[in-house]
Design a binder for these strands. Sequence first.
DNA 1: ATACTATATGCAGTAAAGTGCATGTAGAGT
DNA 2: ACTCTACATGCACTTTACTGCATATAGTAT
Lengths: 115, 115
Amino acid sequence: MNQRSSGYVASAAVFQLLAHASRLHILDELRRRPACVCHLQAVLGRPQAYVSQQLRVLREAGVVVDEKDGLNVYYRIVDGYILRLLEETLGPAEPVQCVAGCPCPHCTGSTGCCS
Amino acid sequence: MNQRSSGYVASAAVFQLLAHASRLHILDELRRRPACVCHLQAVLGRPQAYVSQQLRVLREAGVVVDEKDGLNVYYRIVDGYILRLLEETLGPAEPVQCVAGCPCPHCTGSTGCCS
DNA sequence: ATACTATATGCAGTAAAGTGCATGTAGAGT
DNA sequence: ACTCTACATGCACTTTACTGCATATAGTAT
């Protein structure tokens, strides 16, 4: 075991987080702007519990943090290194857009993300 | 399924390849210079069959290619995108070095990698 | 041909991750 | 206090990946 071995294990753990289509989708959405769970649920078209579980994985890895705002919990990316990997892999983030059928404050227009 | 969904699956597959300490170690070694299996075996300190299996995964994914030279089979990275991810993650490649106990032509000095 | 070296492959057991569902919690409104 | 909404958690099940070992192949040399 040379001095770089632990680095391989750590790096592999980071890649493991990204080696998952749903988590990639979540992170791609979060880099556009912080989003609540119900928004991600609408974007992914997956059950809420499923989305929460993937968010937990990302949260426990320190990649995202959650912030409560009333009933909603907003998640955002706090790891700049992850952002660079996303940019390298998926290209630049797409502009913010509303999601049809999403009940969250951002998408129902009260805070106005739709032009 | 939006038009980006297939991209998430494909990207996740790439990250899956890198989400493995031994494969990262192999790729980190290969970016210094192409290497034969026995060299990687010496570097990793793992059984030959194990190294070959990880190489197969990388080969079938199109990340590395193999070239026969006599009895030896040399592998090298052919995916520039992977190289960029490695650079982003592990930093710049370290200089070429000989491995004690490695029987390959490069390390036994006949082709001279050791100064 | 035989034997040796370098590498590849197949298979089985084990460990880990992914998935779905039921249920728990906590804040907001009435 | 009750209820509703948004979200979290725990658990069982399934699937996938990792690992080790035995064995196969292919080139080289004698």
